[in-house]
Computed example of a mutant assay.
Amino acid sequence: MTGLNGVPEGVAAVVINATSTNASEDGHITAHAAGTAVPATSSLNYRAGKDVASMTIVAVSADGYIELYNPHGRTDLVVDVQGYYTG
């Protein structure tokens, strides 16, 4: 993710806007640094048949990636990077 599309390498976190669409059932998405344990808190809670968006700050792994975890059914997910934190 870092080093691409205007996000420089070495950032500490990214600001993302995640939108769930076409969900098969109610559920949630958890965004976190790639390679780390899935946290107990959600980043986006969605409803079946509804388009739902949420903005969140996500730590980035040492190699520059995040993971998006969906434990419920299926959903299309649109994720836009809105900004980033260096440091």
Rank of each mutant, 00 (worst) to 15 (best):
T86P: 04
H28F: 05
Y65I: 01
P71R: 13
G87H: 10
P8G: 09
L77H: 06
A53V: 06
G35T: 03
H32L: 15
A23C: 01
Y46P: 00
I57D: 00
Y46H: 07
A59Q: 07
T19C: 12
N5W: 08
Y69R: 06
T86F: 10
T75E: 02
V15C: 08
H28W: 10
K50N: 01
G49S: 00
E9P: 04
M1W: 05
Y85T: 11
A40Y: 07
I16H: 01
T75D: 05
A37F: 12
A33F: 07
G6M: 05
L4S: 14
V78W: 09
G83S: 09
T30V: 12
S42Q: 02
V81I: 15
G49A: 06
A37I: 02
R74L: 08
A48L: 05
R74K: 13
A40V: 12
P8Y: 06
N17Y: 07
G87W: 09
Y69G: 04
M1I: 12
T56M: 04
S54K: 11
I66F: 04
D26P: 09
S61L: 03
V11R: 01
S61V: 04
Y69H: 15
Y84C: 07
V38C: 03
Y46T: 03
N22W: 14
A31G: 03
A59R: 03
T21D: 07
Y46L: 06
G27M: 12
Y84T: 13
Y69F: 15
R74M: 07
A48R: 14
A40N: 15
A40W: 05
Q82Y: 12
A31R: 00
M55N: 14
H72D: 11
V11P: 01
T41A: 10
Y84K: 14
A18K: 05
A18M: 12
A37S: 04
K50G: 01
G73I: 03
T30H: 02
H32I: 05
D51N: 12
E9S: 08
V38A: 00
G35E: 06
G73A: 07
N22S: 11
D26N: 15
V11I: 08
T21R: 06
A40H: 11
A37D: 06
Q82D: 11
L44F: 11
A18Q: 02
Y69S: 07
T56E: 04
S61A: 03
D51F: 02
A37H: 00
Y65W: 10
G64M: 01
V15H: 06
N70G: 07
G83V: 10
T21W: 14
A37P: 00
T86N: 15
G6Q: 10
K50C: 02
L44Q: 06
A59T: 02
L77N: 05
R74A: 09
V7W: 07
I16V: 10
I66M: 07
G3Y: 03
Y85D: 04
H28V: 07
V81K: 08
S43P: 02
V15E: 10
D26S: 12
